[in-house]
């Protein structure tokens, strides 16, 4: 028998705080978990897509590089193949999206004999300089988009599409 006996009041206080605490925790924990969930989410492994293009083989002349990734459209998963025009500019690698900024046709390098060394859109005669800058007076209103570029084991990786901010 201990000397400080627990009174009925004390006993009820302890048990109610205990049980109440558990209940509060039970309600609050999921709420907190949901609130911070986005921060805990692991990023899907990189946003870069591997291509079969060796970085060492890239020259000053733009080449077409195909790359494919999976795209989920509601319940339908499909493999999408995209292309980029890749070339070396000084030490850096430039990868341009082939999608014309006019109405979305596919542009080709050097395909117009009258205007060599330009990207040419066969749909409405849109032209871009090698940097991707649109030639004034042709239909496109902006420069070609570029891709983020990276390298892994000597192969080229392509990342997100970024808007080109050529003046």
């Amino acid at each position: 028998m201990s000397n400080n006996r627990v009174s009925r009041r004390q006993f009820l206080n302890y048990t109610l705080t205990g049980v109440g605490g558990f209940m509060a925790a039970g309600i609050l924990m999921p709420m907190v978990r949901f609130a911070i969930d986005p921060a805990l989410q692991t990023k899907a492994e990189g946003d870069f897509v591997q291509t079969s293009q060796k970085v060492a083989d890239i020259t000053e002349e733009p080449v077409k590089v195909d790359f494919s990734y999976e795209q989920v459209d509601a319940w339908y998963t499909s493999e999408v193949t995209d292309t980029a025009w890749v070339y070396k500019s000084g030490d850096s690698i430039v990868a341009l999206s082939p999608v014309c900024k006019h109405l979305g046709c596919t542009v080709n390098w050097n395909s117009d004999t009258e205007h060599p060394n330009q990207f040419f859109c066969a749909c409405h005669g849109g032209r871009y300089e090698k940097t991707g800058k649109n030639v004034p007076g042709t239909p496109p209103l902006g420069p070609l988009d570029a891709y983020e570029v990276s390298e892994k084991d000597g192969f080229l990786l392509l990342g997100k599409k970024i808007a080109n901010n050529l003046a």
Binding site: G104, C105, T106, C121, C123, H124
Partner: peptide
């Protein structure tokens, strides 16, 4: 299948026209 794949490809190339 051939015709559908091909026309989809043509569409991609000439989307704006």
């Amino acid at each position: 299948d051939f015709l559908m794949s091909l026309t989809a490809f043509v569409e991609q190339q000439f989307k704006g026209r």
